[in-house]
Design a protein around this nucleic acid. Structure first.
Lengths: 360, 360
DNA sequence: TTGTAAGCGTTATCAG
DNA sequence: CTGATAACGCTTACAA
């Protein structure tokens, strides 16, 4: 069945597929209307098998690939989800991203990653760009914006904030992470191992989770009847350099302590180096505990005892959560529990003589 | 100057900005035509100051944000650049991404990150998605596709491949990284320090750079008159686990060696742990050298001697390169040189008695 | 089941 | 300098 008079002679080498073929050309080549091609593309209606075949053949021959922009504009759906991270290159966020990405592909969404570099203005700017891109939902990894502002942005697309507790609603929700309990468990472990003087290198006080971790440390101490001693706390910045400097200050000040609990693993890396430089052995002289369980922490020398965040799992939860929100399904987000991973940077020590510690 | 009869009474609380305002509404509110609004938005023509002001005021009041999709469809420009990475969560790629992202914002492009998980089919799929999104250019971090396939994809948008040497043209170019020289330098350093039996833990043989690193190691050995000994080479996989296993095999086989050169830092982390488990001291018993200089390598215990890749800089080069290609400007990409960073996992040893080594 | 035609929200070409 | 008006490439009623 031939179409027109010279239809076949006209395009001798059409399989060379010009860079950007359009739906209309496929329709023409297959001898059907544009709508039919569209239907086949979207499976939105049944089409006669022969036309189906003709269209598919044309698509393959021309190497046709629908223009996502046009498609989204026409349909009103972009099938994209914005993922705002504070720093793409942070080893910590990397795992979250992986969990998010993997779980997003299945329901058919494409993540668009942007990063705000721990900067509030950047955070706003990136968020607006995502909205301008008409993402259908947004996952924020540690937003700095306050709740009212988030709610305002959430009017455009549902948002899920990781590591934050919010008044959850259909458009804005937070997936809190139980940092306090994690820090308390880690500190308790140290106490159970006989440590009484435990130093702490804190994270930036502007971070909610850093504060929670400090609180967990303090509470464990108080619960054990040891009491919080501000003299054992040094300020870090969640980075290796900060941990190194803080540990140096701590050692220079010479308070007595047998263990150091760091607000995150990167801080612990820095502290570890400071001790190595001074010839302080871990864990023989000082026990060390981190927080996060970064992939490399189990390869430290010795392997680091730390609080594990199920990062990949958190990513999955976030991805599933935002998809449900987009689908207007209600979701319930319970705080993610963290678990202590006991490795080799902590050791039991004999408690110094008697003290007021209670049994059990 | 009033517009219509009840224009003002009609919208009492329009500043509540409905989720998605469109250009047309701004035009109406400002009393101008859509084209004028568009002109102001793009600065594509001069407009009377008063209209300019009226429009800007309306934009602010309605909190209007142009629809990127519509804009791109109409203009044919998306101002996006696809960045295909093998693994978003790899600590190695993270730094490249940062360099790329930072240098892309300035020329006004937005990166779209996707990852192919070291899988060829995924690589193709992600690339097609990027093309369907009409990105204006693509940066690939270690493509697995062969050159003809890359060239085919490059017909849609210019592509720049990091870590690969290609026949550079206007649409497809590679930014090679001098892995061979880096590996040779590292091996030479070990030789200069007196080591003669140097083991090597290789990367996956499917990776071009892994092969180059092995070659560099071999060449340095041969140049020094030591000769390559396959018995000193173990297979790794660029991951910590592979390094750990390889080192264990190596130690179990008991060939004599005083140093181990690992194809990348992650491998070295694994090897380090294997040695720690066996009580083998670094560098007193065995010297260790890595490759890449990941951010945490300088915080290892002891800090790792390794070959530094100027990752952030490479990211910059890539970003600038792809932008130039998009602008049809010619670019010249010279191989990126790597430098050895001598830290504390290597030590000088007394060469065992005499040997055929030449002076100098 | 299939085709026609009217958008989707902007930009861009032309007159004026 | 500004306003109609026609694209941009696809989806989607509405008819047939």
């Amino acid at each position: 069945m031939t179409d027109g008079p010279n239809e076949n002679r006209d395009a001798p080498k059409e399989d060379i597929s010009s860079p950007n073929v359009k739906l209309e050309e496929i329709a023409r080549a297959a001898g059907v209307s544009p709508s039919t091609v569209s239907r086949i593309l979207n499976g939105s209606a049944r089409v006669l098998p022969e036309k189906q075949r003709a269209v598919e053949e044309a698509i393959a021959r021309f190497n046709y690939r629908p223009n996502v922009l046009a498609r989204s504009l026409a349909s009103g759906r972009t099938a994209t989800i914005g993922v705002l991270t504070q720093a793409v290159s942070s080893p910590f966020y990397a795992e979250w991203l992986r969990g998010i990405e993997e779980s997003l592909y299945e329901p058919g969404f494409t993540p668009i990653f942007v990063s705000s570099r721990w900067n509030l203005d950047d955070e706003k700017a990136r968020l607006e760009e995502l909205i301008a891109r008409r993402v259908e939902g947004v996952i924020l990894l540690h937003a700095q914006l306050d709740e009212p502002s988030l709610a305002e942005y959430a009017r455009h697309a549902p948002m899920l904030v990781l590591g934050r507790s919010l008044h959850n609603g259909p458009a804005l929700a937070g997936l809190p992470i139980d940092n306090l309990k994690g820090a308390r468990d880690a500190t308790r472990h140290l106490i159970e191992e006989g440590h009484r003087e435990i130093a702490f290198i804190a994270g930036p006080s502007s971070h909610e989770d850093a504060i929670e971790r400090l609180d967990g440390y303090r509470i464990a101490l108080e619960e054990a009847g040891i009491g919080f001693d501000a003299g054992l706390v040094e300020q870090g910045d969640y980075l290796e350099t900060g941990g190194l400097a803080a540990m140096e200050r701590l050692m220079a000040r010479r308070p007595t302590f047998s263990a150091v609990f760091c607000a995150n693993d990167q801080t612990a890396y820095g502290a570890r180096l400071a001790m190595f430089r001074r010839g302080v052995r871990v864990p023989e002289d000082i026990s060390l505990v981190g927080f996060d369980d970064l992939p490399t922490s189990s390869y430290m020398t010795p392997p680091l005892t730390t609080v594990r965040q199920p990062t990949f799992e958190i990513g999955r939860l976030a991805a599933q959560g935002i998809v449900q929100m987009i689908r207007k399904q209600s979701i319930s987000l319970s705080p993610v529990p963290l678990t202590l991973v006991t490795r080799e940077t902590t050791r039991r020590i004999a408690p110094p003589a008697s003290s007021g510690a209670q049994p059990g």
